[in-house]
C-alpha cells in the first residue's frame, strides 16, 4: 500500500532561548499513513507529538528530513503549501478556540473553499460538508454562531471546515480531548465513518491509548522526539514490548496489572540523554544493568507498516 502521507528522518529543532540548549522536539521520526488508514500517534505532553503533527501539515518547517505527500516531497513556498493543504487538513483540539466567535457556521466552513477560490456553488459545498460532519439538516446549522452550539457540535463544524476542501488526509491533534465523555464517542464514530464512506486517511494525535483502541489501525508511541514502538493496535496495545509502552498501559485504571510508575517527570527535549533516550526512567534497565542502554544509541525505527511490531529497545530485541 502506497502511503498517502509519509515523514522520513524528520527532525524539528526549536532554537535556543537565552543560553539554554536548543529543543529537539522531533528527533528523527519515520512514519507512514496509508490510503484509508487511521494511525494514532500517542505520547505524553512534551514528547513532540504536536510538533510532528504541525510539521505534517506544513505549519512547522522541519530542520531535517522530509514530509512526503503521495510520494512527493512537500515544498515550502506559499503556493506549494496552499496546494498541499487542500490535500491534508488539520483539526485542532479546542473547537472553541479554533472557531471565530463572530463568524457563523457557514462562513467558518466556507473560509477554506474561499481561500482556494472554490466559490462555484459554494453553498452546496458547505452544506455537503456540514452534512458529512453530522450536522443535519445543514440549513439549520449554517446561520448559527459558535456560542449557540455545544462543544461536540463546534468540533463537528471544525471537521466540516476541513472536509469542505475534500482532503484525502486529516491530521487531528487531540480531536476529542476537550469534549465530554459521551460526546467524545460520537466524534470518534464520525472519524471512523468518514474513513469508511470517503476513504479518508487520518493521523490522530492523542495522549489517550483508549482512543487508539477505539478507532486506529496502527499506533506509534512517541517518547522524547522519537517513536519508540510501532505496530498494529493489537500488537502494541495487547502485546507491548517497549518498557515505556508497557508502563503507559500498566497505569490505566483497567489494566489489571500492578502499575509501573515511572519516576520523575516527562524529560526535557533540551537535554536528550545519550544512549537509549528512555534509560534514566526505564524500569527494565534498572533490573538488567545492561551497559548498552546508557551508551549505545538506538537506530530510528522504519515507518513502514509491513515491518510491524517494532520497538526501539536494546533489551527486547
Amino acid at each position: 500500500m502506497k502511503p498517502v502521507l509519509e515523514v522520513r528522518d524528520l527532525t524539528v529543532t526549536y532554537p535556543a532561548r537565552r543560553g539554554a540548549a536548543p529543543a529537539r522536539a522531533v528527533d528523527g521520526v519515520n512514519l507512514q499513513v496509508g490510503q484509508g488508514e487511521i494511525v494514532a500517534l500517542v505520547g505524553e505532553s512534551g514528547c513532540g507529538k504536536s510538533t510532528l503533527a504541525r510539521a505534517l501539515v506544513g505549519l512547522v518547517k522541519p530542520t531535517g528530513g522530509q514530509v512526503l505527500s503521495d510520494g512527493v516531497p512537500l515544498g515550502y513556498s506559499a503556493a506549494a503549501l496552499k496546494a498541499y493543504r487542500r490535500h491534508t487538513q488539520l483539526v485542532l483540539q479546542d473547537p472553541g478556540g479554533a472557531l471565530n466567535p463572530r463568524q457563523n457556521v457557514f462562513d467558518a466552513v466556507a473560509e477554506g473553499p474561499r481561500l482556494h477560490g472554490l466559490t462555484d456553488r459554494l453553498g452546496e459545498r458547505v452544506h455537503t460538508a456540514l452534512a458529512k460532519a453530522g450536522l443535519r439538516p445543514p440549513e439549520q446549522f449554517a446561520g448559527r454562531f459558535p456560542h449557540e452550539m455545544s462543544g461536540g457540535q463546534q468540533q463537528r463544524v471544525v471537521i466540516a471546515g476541513a472536509l469542505a476542501l475534500e482532503p484525502s488526509v486529516i491530521v487531528a491533534d487531540e480531536p476529542v480531548a476537550s469534549l465530554d465523555a459521551s460526546v467524545r464517542g460520537e466524534i470518534l464514530k464520525l472519524i471512523l465513518e468518514l474513513r469508511d464512506s470517503l476513504g479518508l486517511s487520518a493521523l490522530v494525535v492523542s495522549h489517550d491509548l483508549g482512543l487508539a483502541w477505539n478507532i486506529a489501525d496502527r499506533v506509534a508511541v512517541m517518547y522524547l522526539g522519537r517513536i519508540v514502538e510501532t505496530g498494529t493496535v493489537e500488537e502494541v496495545l495487547l502485546r507491548p514490548r517497549h518498557p515505556y509502552t508497557r508502563a503507559l498501559l500498566s497505569v490505566l485504571p483497567d489494566s489489571g496489572e500492578p502499575p509501573v510508575l515511572l519516576t520523575g517527570e516527562p524529560p526535557d527535549p533540551t537535554s536528550v540523554p545519550g544512549g537509549c533516550r528512555f534509560h534514566p526512567r526505564c524500569p527494565l534497565r534498572a533490573a538488567e544493568q545492561d551497559p548498552r542502554c546508557d551508551t549505545v544509541d538506538l537506530p530510528v525505527l522504519t515507518g513502514e507498516p509491513s515491518s510491524s511490531g517494532l520497538a526501539a529497545c536494546h533489551l527486547v530485541q
Partner: peptide, 25 residues
Amino acid sequence: ALGRAFPTIGDPASRLAPAGLPGDP
C-alpha cells in the same frame, strides 16, 4: 453510556467501535 465511553483496552466490543451518546447534556 458513560461507562462505555471509556473503553477497556483488549475488550473486543469496543475495538473500532467507539461508543457515545447522541445529543448533548
